[in-house]
Design a protein around this nucleic acid. Structure first.
Lengths: 203, 203
DNA sequence: TTATTTTTGTATTATTCGTTACATATAATT
DNA sequence: AATTATATGTAACGAATAATACAAAAATAA
């Protein structure tokens, strides 16, 4: 049974509701998502929402954290678990294309790119979470490159952090195109080349 | 003197007002920008706005076109005018960093990335303009690569469209980071490597 | 100047926004 | 079963939203 922080039962699952809210924000943006949109998607009434999440802004910040540790995380997990580094880079990019074009909720692109980045100057605290997500992703990508360098799979001169950022930047192009409605097949065309480029030995 | 379409004088310059509106949308997004924000920044009253632009949505669509043919265009112009292709790629990326971090209005990032991409599912017509802008940019980058290939500056096997898209995708990474508040110096660090990578001969 | 047409400014429209009282319903504890 | 504490649902709050009606002002044409 679902419990609240006092150990009492609650009629709805906070995490499930949060995920629903996240998809509304993802699709409509912070300002575009009305409380009515949110409560409707979450299947609760506004007093319950305010009791559990505080207000719209706090709900939004929680949604950002939720996204960063689930959807946005999936490509990273693919990247980290695939043993072969060349395949891992490709897996990362394919996973990005996948979740930015086919989402259960119909949301396209990336929540961070198309919703949070719009609001990050207006919603207090959003910019910090955004930078945190960016730096975390850079760092996780870099860590794997460093590991492969240590294992001898990548040359000693391999600039791990630069390539990590490059890989992340290429990701941004993909999610942006996905948001604009460009179809999955078209997005996937360039991935093989991108992957090769990211791993190319420095001249 | 400024004239309207009937040849009569008008108290404000439509293009100047449109540019002001564009910066408001850029900063606050479509939903986040209130008519009060807009009229205030444009220096006009709402009846004038509605008389000249129709409504908020039409003003927004005009703002997108305005952006596509000015701010977003500047890096392309730099790319097309620099004679040396290696310098041209670098000039493109540096110009992107420049306009996405230092803007007269204080707007960060890219209007298309951080405002239009959010609204493109909600504001009718925005997604078409967004795809148009993407395809146009891809095409213009590609055209230059093709030109250099014909001139012998790039190998015959150079995949112009793929690299054009790659360059554009790298751009997206830069403007996203800029929007998140990452400073110019940090963004510029990776440009030399990115430029080299885009122009590297295919293996 | 006078008459006519267009633009501007004030003020207001109905609607929707985020948020919250308050009363009912539900579940755990005594 | 009675009590207590929490969650829910209805309904409403003031404020802000996009969009207009209407009258004053400005500018051209006669």
């Amino acid at each position: 049974m679902i419990k609240n922080k006092a150990g009492r039962p609650r009629a709805f699952d906070k995490d499930v509701a949060l995920k629903s809210a996240m998809h509304v924000f993802w699709t409509k943006g912070y300002e575009g998502a009305s409380m009515r949109d949110l409560t409707q998607a979450m299947g609760i009434n506004s007093p319950s929402l305010y009791a559990v999440f505080g207000d719209k802004r706090k709900l939004y910040l929680e949604a950002i954290n939720c996204y960063a540790s689930s959807d946005a995380c999936a490509p990273l997990v693919a990247f980290e678990t695939e043993p072969d580094i060349h395949k891992a880079v490709r897996a990362f990019l394919y996973a990005v294309v996948d979740y930015s074009t086919t989402n259960e909720s119909g949301a396209k692109g990336c929540f961070l790119s198309s919703s949070v980045s719009t609001s990050c100057g207006e919603v207090e605290g959003a910019d910090d979470l955004l930078r945190l997500a960016i730096n975390d992703t850079d760092a996780r990508l870099c860590r794997r490159f460093e590991l492969e360098r240590a294992r001898g799979e990548l040359p000693d001169s391999f600039p791990s952090m630069e390539r990590a950022k490059t890989l992340f930047d290429l990701r941004q192009g993909l999610v942006f195109r996905a948001r604009a409605g460009i179809e999955q097949a078209s997005l996937s065309e360039n991935i093989e080349f991108s992957a090769k480029m990211v791993l190319a030995a420095p001249e």
